[in-house]
Amino acid sequence: MCLAIPGKIRSIEQTEGLIRRAKVVFGSIVKEAYLDMIPQAKEGDYVLVHAGVAINLVNEEEALKTFAHLQAYGGLEDLLPEEGIGG
């Protein structure tokens, strides 16, 4: 659960005060993530997402490389829905 997963911001949906919610694409999975801590992030940017919150920007090349690594070595379980872990 310590590994942040890089994804691409598809859309920024809503802004309530400081709350910025985005749809972020991780390979074939789309998840909600909050951009509150990266005010400069915009659509098309790559972000490192951890526990549903973007913690930093990352460049595209790095994002794609890291994602491929996580995919190959089983680092994406965190993104799967609850049923995936037998709960």
Partner: peptide
């Protein structure tokens, strides 16, 4: 639970709850 990587998300959840 978690290290410094998880702390932003946990802290932010409290700020959202307050908002």
């Amino acid at each position: 639970v978690g290290f410094e990587t998880t702390a932003p998300a946990n802290a932010l959840s409290v700020l959202h709850a307050r908002q």
